[in-house]
Amino acid sequence: MPPKATPSSKSTIKQQSSLTQLITLLKTQQFYWFLGHVFALLFSILSTLTGLIFKNQLSLKYFRFALISNIITYGIVIKQIHFKSSTTSSNVSRIKLINDENIQYLVLALVFLLSSYILKTQNQSALYPYVIFGVFHVVTYFQNHLITIFIPSIPAQQHLNSLINNFTSQLNQPALYAASSVELVLALTTGFDVVISSFWLILRWNFFDYITKVIVFLTVIIFNKFKFDHSQYTKASVLQMDQTWNGYVNRLNNPKLTQLFFNFRDLVIRYLGLINIPKDVKTTQ
């Protein structure tokens, strides 16, 4: 009959077990996906705070770090989905890649990252959708993999699990709506930036910066159109925005302005209709 374990030996065994679990996690790509989201959230917060308190250059530095962290996390997911081996890599179609939301978000982050080096400025709103998704990814990963390692008490684990379940169940859908709304606002802000830059182009003639802003705007537009084609949250956000603008215009009670608005609206819808996402199997993050 083996000797009974003393409390101290039980504690040691439990610590060794937790350490073993942690070492096992360290060997998985998913753990570095989790770390990527953690760093992305940290750098996003630092970018926002330093932008409010210190010079813009420091905020821009953290802005770039946040985008790089997001690019790494989406890169890990894309590799796991499409490039597990050389055999699967050769069979991945371009249409399937384009349809993958993970690649769409990676391209969007990459465009904002490259443009920040050219324009020497940042669009803080570009980080917000990644922050929203990142919070849920970090919380869910912690619940599924880390809570038993760092919180030894079973009652504490159960209480925290309950809190996380309530958080995700109650806020998941509103968060998806919020992310879609931010992405639409991003289209408006980048478009407004292009319009303003069109006037400054005549005075300063900084053509390279202007083209960069146009590319960013078109990327955001295409990104939103792709999401609109298969996301109920983006469709709902577009409908809500359309109703809001219609209400503003109707309250002006100006027939000429109303007609001008609806002509412009129809023109935008017509051109956006030309952007069609290729039909294939969709994969989401």
Rank of each mutant, 00 (worst) to 15 (best):
V268A: 08
L274A: 07
L113C: 08
H159K: 13
I95G: 12
S86Y: 11
I23Y: 13
Q240S: 13
P129D: 04
F261P: 02
Q15T: 10
E183K: 00
Q122N: 07
H145M: 10
S237I: 01
L176E: 05
V195M: 11
Q104E: 14
V77R: 07
N254D: 15
T121R: 09
K213V: 00
F112Y: 15
A175N: 06
V195W: 08
Q104M: 14
Y210P: 04
I23K: 15
F112D: 00
L257R: 02
K256F: 09
K96T: 15
L49N: 05
Q170M: 10
K55I: 07
N276P: 00
S116W: 05
I202P: 00
F262W: 14
L267C: 10
F133P: 00
L60I: 12
R94E: 06
I215D: 01
N144L: 13
S180A: 15
S44K: 01
Q104N: 15
L272Y: 03
H159D: 09
L58A: 10
V135T: 11
R94F: 15
K61G: 05
G36M: 02
T12N: 12
I275G: 02
S11D: 14
G247I: 06
H82E: 03
L171A: 11
H159R: 12
L146E: 09
Q122C: 02
I222N: 04
G51M: 03
L186K: 09
I76K: 02
D209L: 11
L49D: 00
S17M: 12
P152I: 09
G75Y: 06
I53S: 07
I222T: 15
I211K: 09
D100M: 01
F63Q: 04
I277P: 00
Q122W: 01
F199T: 09
D209K: 14
L26D: 06
P129Y: 08
H82A: 10
H230S: 09
I277Y: 00
T20K: 13
T234L: 03
K84H: 05
S69P: 05
N102R: 15
F261S: 03
I81W: 07
G273Y: 01
S231C: 03
W33M: 02
I118F: 06
Q143C: 03
R265W: 12
T20I: 10
Q243G: 05
Q122L: 04
S162H: 11
T283D: 12
I164A: 01
S11Y: 10
V195N: 01
R265H: 13
G134Q: 07
F133L: 11
I76F: 07
V107K: 11
N99P: 07
P7S: 06
Y128I: 15
